[in-house]
Design a protein around this nucleic acid. Structure first.
Lengths: 349, 349
DNA sequence: CTGAAAGCGCTTACAG
DNA sequence: CTGAAAGCGCTTACAG
């Protein structure tokens, strides 16, 4: 019948040693002779013994799990392609390490802080990933209070005492602006992300800087919450200006796709009448018409590196921050010369 | 200094009772007088005591967590908008119940089965959600062997001994076909999903049936893996036929959006030259041009109901299957009369 | 209604 | 190099 799962006691008994020794052998601790260790491991294998996670957790105060709290309203959660890919990367390293990922999806700031408290209070996780950094993020203080190891995704604003894994998205935006300026655009607008999020703010300031470097006048900037709906509204607003932009740089792909839709609905041809760039290099961005010029990062790799960094931080008490290869511009079909310069520039090619 | 977290012993001592009684009071077990219970709970509150999850887990063999294993290749994981929304729904009920969600993302079938074994072997979870059902799914047997409570999403093919939460997507496909037939289409094709997945197969057979009911000849069907790339390829293939379809019913939104891109690239106007319907009612589908006619379900609600069902199954050993409101057609701008009938039908409106 | 005690399955000083 | 024992913080029969 349903045979009871073997415990460390069973292993010790059939190997003829004490429980303590089995534990030492399992955990590769010194003080066990090679032959004894080998015999213990064999017996454990034969019996199909697997150490009990909860017993281990109780004696070591370790959960062997990592936590990720995502703060997104249910309506927009699907719009962000970053998380699924990031999580896939995280999982690929956790699986090898026998760790699990505890995921929490919360709708607002209060629930977010509550979630970290619960995760820490229940010792559900040994550390957490911090995404969507905001300036003066309330989570920084909370994590310190909870003594919960954390790795930040992106460059935290006030320097924080924990490592971060970051990717220079500044470079991508600069490349996009330079690309558009090269094509002859001078009226370039930016549909930015949420100004309270670090990456939203950073993309915005790198946009400003790139415009300056290209010798152009400051472009119009519209703030959004990163949703397709906001992207569409912002585009509509920009196109209704007396002198509308000839190119728009969006802070993510869903907004760029929505902007493309608005432009087409108004009878504009992209890129003949309006150039558009996205951000993220999502799968679908290559299949809309025209295929989106966008800025690609590698969220799967980001997840892998973040997981390794967090595991190292937990194991060794310290870990270096990592700088990932910068986001790069991927030129496809949604960008071209501006309307007035078309003849001139076309002659070049 | 860093004060130790209070334990049940601290509560018992300061309340002047035994540990056992504190436990009884906490868990609402009979055998504690109302006054004593009240006093114990007060002391616990004052001390800020929170029962230790791992100690509890060890004595009750319960993890207070639920598991979700998603099998998707990293490249396509972001394309499927179902999971983030589903997870948001699950979390909304788990948060209230003090449960956590353990997420596992795996690339292939072998890793998937390994993941369930690990989750069960480590007692990481008390039960799991089963998504992307396949016919004669190997997971059915495994879960029985592991004695792991499970709730299936969708209608399992050979009847299974555990409850399911399902949504009739048949109805949506039928409505889409009927809608297109009403508009005057007779050459309708279906870009189906993965035939090995239950929902892919079911949408396909309901397409066939709906065509028959509309009195139309069987439409062309192309199988895919649900990815945008496959959706684009399938569309290209269909449009190159000698007598191409005048309408295409896609098994999900990303493929429909990719199909829309292919059509536009070939100079076809949608819906004047080709009508297109999606499936899922994703956020972005409302922002492409023309806005996609699609079939909407409610994955957030699906997550909520699935979570409640699984919790009930775990607590009571049994739970009823639930039938969610059927997916419904949302008519937007990507469907219209076929090219040849345009004049006629337009006269009606 | 309440208390004292054993047990869940590990880890880890402490002796030998 | 090895063993016996205490401890992690709960739950749960078993006595009273």
């Amino acid at each position: 019948m349903a045979e009871r799962k073997p415990t460390i006691t069973d292993v010790a008994r059939t190997a003829g040693v004490s429980k303590g020794l089995v534990s030492f052998a399992l955990n590769d601790k010194p003080g066990v002779s090679p032959e004894t260790r080998k015999r213990i491991l064999e017996v454990a294998g034969d019996l199909g013994w697997r150490p009990s996670l909860s017993a281990r957790s109780l004696s070591t105060s370790t959960s062997y799990a990592l936590g990720l709290v995502i703060r997104r309203k249910p309506e927009v959660i699907s719009a962000d392609p970053f998380f699924p890919a990031f999580i896939a990367g995280v999982e690929s390293v956790l699986a090898e390490e026998g760790r699990a990922l505890v995921l929490s999806v919360v709708p607002d700031a209060a629930a977010e802080l509550r979630s970290y408290r619960t995760l820490a209070g229940d010792s559900r996780v040994d550390g957490v990933f911090l995404t969507d950094l905001r300036s003066n993020d309330a989570r920084f203080g909370l994590l310190a209070e909870l003594r919960l190891p954390a790795v930040a995704l992106g460059r935290p604003d006030p320097a924080v005492p924990f490592p971060s894994v970051q990717l220079d998205d500044t470079h991508g935006i600069a490349q996009a602006v330079a690309h558009l300026a090269d094509l002859g655009h001078s009226r370039i607008a930016h549909v930015a992300g949420d100004p309270h999020m670090m990456h939203g703010g950073r993309r915005r300031s790198s946009f400003n800087e790139a415009m300056r470097e290209a010798g152009l006048e400051p472009g119009l900037i519209v703030e959004t919450d990163f949703s397709a709906a906001c992207g569409a509204d912002a585009t509509r607003m920009l196109l209704e200006k007396r002198r509308p932009p000839t190119a728009i740089v969006y802070a993510n792909d869903p907004m760029a796709i929505a902007g493309l839709g608005v432009a087409q609905q108004r009878g504009l041809r992209v890129p003949a009448d309006l150039s558009i760039t996205g951000f993220d290099g999502t799968d679908i961005s290559g299949y809309v018409f025209p295929a989106l010029t966008t800025i690609t990062s590698d969220p799967v790799e980001w997840g892998r590196v973040a997981a390794r960094t967090l595991l190292r931080l937990i194991a060794e008490g310290t870990a270096e921050s990592v700088e990932l290869p910068p986001a790069a511009l991927l030129v496809r079909a949604s960008t071209g010369p501006p309307p007035s310069d078309r003849g001139t520039v076309a002659a070049h090619s």
